[in-house]
Nucleic acid binder design. Structure first.
Lengths: 237, 237
DNA sequence: CGTAAAATTGATATTTCTCAATGAGAGTGG
DNA sequence: CCACTCTCATTGAGAAATATCAATTTTACG
C-alpha cells in the first residue's frame, strides 16, 4: 500500500547461484542462455508493506520472486479486498493480455524480486520456445490452484477454509524449505481472512477453536500442527 | 453425469470453414498448417447432460468447443459441487500438468467439440511456437477470469453475485453472437447456484427480487435485461 | 515505557441456508 | 389430446453460519 521506494542491487549476483534457479522460469534455460538472461533481470528489494505493482497499472515489467512473500489482491470499488494468492520464491508475476496488471501485489515482510523489463524479456522469449513452455506450465499450474481456491471460496465452511489453508500453506513452505510441523504465517489475520473470504473475527475465532480442540497451537508468527489428522479431517479433503 | 455415448462425425468438415476458426487455438495457424491440423482433430457430438471428461481421468485428449455450452466443475467428497466455469465455443479444454484432468466437464444441451489426441497434438505444437503462444494466451485469459471469479465468490453478496453473473454471461454471449437484451441461460438454476457459491433457493429468490424491482424479466430459457443500469449498480462494479 | 496496530473475545444482527411445500413446464403413454 | 409424472423452479418459515459492532487484550515498535 505504501509508495514504492526500492533498493536496486546491481553487483555480485549471478543466475547460476540464484536460490530459485531450479524452480523458476529460468529452470528452462541452459548455461549459455542463462548468461544472456542474467543481463535482463535486476534484483530489486522491497520493504515490508511496499507495493510492487498495482492493478490497472500498465505492465512495464515481469517479476520473479526470489525471497519473501507477497500478497496478490484485487479491490472492489468500496474497498472490499480479495487476496487471490500469495506469491513465494519461484513464482512468476506480471503476465497478462491487456497490458495492465490484473491484480495488485504488496510485499509481506522484506521481498527480493528479479525484475525484467517487458520489452527485452518479450524479445528474449521470442526465439526460445522452451522458456515460453515453462511460462505456460507456470500459468497452467496457477490456473489449477485458482480453481481449487474457487471450490474453497464457494463451497467450504469457515472451519474447512482455515484448516485447508493451514495445510496448503504448510505444503507450499514444505516445497521450498525444510519440512516442519510449525507453520510460519508471515501474513496478518486480515490477509488470511481476505484470502479465505471471511472476516478477521471469524478467522481468529476459528484459530482459537482449533487450538482449544488440540489440533494446533498458536505460536509467535505462525501455528504448530499438533494433530495433523484432525486438521486434515476438518479440511474435508 | 451420464455415461458418454458419443457420435463421431468424420466427413465433410474443414477447419477453414469452422465456426470458431478466428477465436480458438487454431487462430494462430496459417492456411498450410491448418490443412495439417485438420487431420489431428475430429468432431465429436455430445448430447445434453453427457460427460465429456471427468476430474482425475487420465488426459487422453484436448478439446476445442465448437458449439454449445459446457459446465466445468469440481466435486468435494461429500458431493458439494463448485462450477469453476462455463465453456463456450472457442474455449480450449484439457491442459494440465499432472496428466489428469483437474475438473469435470458436462454438456449443457447439445455440444460439438473438436477433439485432439494428446500425443499427436503435443507433437504438432512442438515446433510451432505460435500455437504454444496462443495456448498460453488462452491460459492467461482464463487465469484472469478465475481471479475475477474469486473476488465474486469471496467478497460479494448474493445480489451482487447474481447481477454480475447476468452481466458477465451477457457479455460472453455478446462476444459470440449478435447483441441482445435478452440473455439466454441454458444452464439450470442449480448450475448457476453452484457457479456463484449459493443455493438454488437463494438464486431463485434473487431472480424474483430483481424481477420485482423491474430490473429484469424472467422469460423462457433466460432473462431480459429491462434496466441494465440498475443491474450494473447491483453488481457493484 | 508508551503508544499504535493487530488479535482476540463477546453480544447481537444479518445473510444465507435448510427443510418443506407448492407450482409450472416438458415429455410420455393411454 | 389429455392425464400423469418427473424434473425444475419458486416460495415460505425457521435455523444456522458468519458478519458486524464494540470492548479488551496482546504484541510490536519507536
Amino acid at each position: 500500500m505504501k509508495p514504492s521506494v526500492v533498493t536496486i542491487e546491481s553487483t555480485g549476483h549471478f543466475c547460476s547461484d540464484c536460490a530459485v534457479r531450479g524452480s523458476a522460469v529460468c529452470a528452462s534455460l541452459d548455461a549459455a542462455e542463462l548468461r544472456q538472461f542474467e543481463h535482463l533481470g535486476r534484483r530489486v528489494h522491497f520493504a515490508s508493506g511496499e507495493t510492487v505493482f498495482s492493478e490497472e497499472d500498465i505492465t512495464t515489467s515481469f517479476y520473479n520472486v526470489l525471497e519473501g512473500v507477497m500478497r496478490l489482491y484485487k479491490l472492489l470499488p468500496d474497498g472490499r479486498r480479495q487476496i487471490v494468492g500469495f506469491a513465494l520464491p519461484g513464482d512468476f508475476l506480471g503476465m497478462n493480455l491487456s497490458g495492465r496488471h490484473n491484480f495488485s501485489a504488496d510485499a509481506i515482510g522484506a521481498v527480493t524480486v528479479c525484475q525484467f523489463a517487458k520489452g527485452p524479456f518479450g524479445r528474449f522469449i521470442e526465439d526460445r520456445p522452451q522458456l515460453l513452455r515453462r511460462i505456460n506450465e507456470l500459468a497452467i499450474r496457477e490456473l489449477s490452484q485458482a480453481r481449487d481456491h474457487m471450490v474453497l471460496l464457494g463451497r467450504r465452511s469457515a472451519d474447512e477454509k482455515v484448516a485447508s489453508f493451514l495445510l496448503g500453506w504448510r505444503e507450499r513452505l514444505f516445497m521450498l524449505n525444510a519440512p516442519s510441523d510449525t507453520v510460519s504465517l508471515p501474513m496478518s489475520r486480515q490477509d488470511i481472512a481476505d484470502y479465505l473470504g471471511l472476516t478477521i473475527e471469524t478467522v481468529s475465532r476459528t484459530f482459537t477453536k482449533l487450538e482449544r480442540h488440540g489440533a494446533i497451537e498458536i505460536i509467535q508468527g505462525g501455528v504448530s500442527l499438533l494433530d495433523q489428522a484432525r486438521v486434515e479431517a476438518l479440511a474435508a479433503a
